[in-house]
Design a protein around this nucleic acid. Structure first.
Length: 116
DNA sequence: AAGGTGACAGGGT
DNA sequence: TACCCTGCCACCT
């Protein structure tokens, strides 16, 4: 992902962009999972979504904090500038977090299949 | 070239 | 609920 001049890297870029495009559609105050995005994009592996999101900080406007794992845990928190930032951003949107887990996860869950 | 490593998920126990 | 095991796929030794 370093050499963006490289045509091979551009293939990755489109790959990333698809994940980013979905992430950007997550409404404020809602959350979704890596697997839901992977299914929607037919990527075949949820791990790929996390991997793409890990490089999303070079992009603007990608609400990576709204993506959690299937149990509603903030598994990506350690990749933010500070480990508490992910939780703070969610709570600022009205999503309560307790013990690194989203409270009432099913109530806040948003599927990419859903309409906005 | 082969094996290890992820911001994961699903099924079994 | 929680833990364990397996499948997943691109990247990096």
């Amino acid at each position: 992902m370093k050499n963006w001049q490289n045509p091979c890297a551009m293939k990755q870029a489109t790959y990333f962009d698809r994940v980013y495009a979905v992430a950007r559609r997550i409404p404020r105050g809602r959350v979704t999972t890596y697997g839901a995005i992977a299914d929607f994009l037919a990527l075949g592996a949820a791990r790929m979504v996390g991997w793409a999101l890990n490089h999303s900080f070079s992009e603007q406007g990608v609400p990576a904090h709204r993506v959690v794992n299937r149990k509603g845990e903030l598994s990506g928190r350690t990749h933010f500038p500070t480990p508490t930032m992910m939780q703070e951003m969610l709570e600022a949107e009205g999503v309560c977090v307790e013990d690194n887990r989203v409270v009432d996860f099913s109530k806040h869950f948003w599927s990419p299949e859903e309409e906005q």
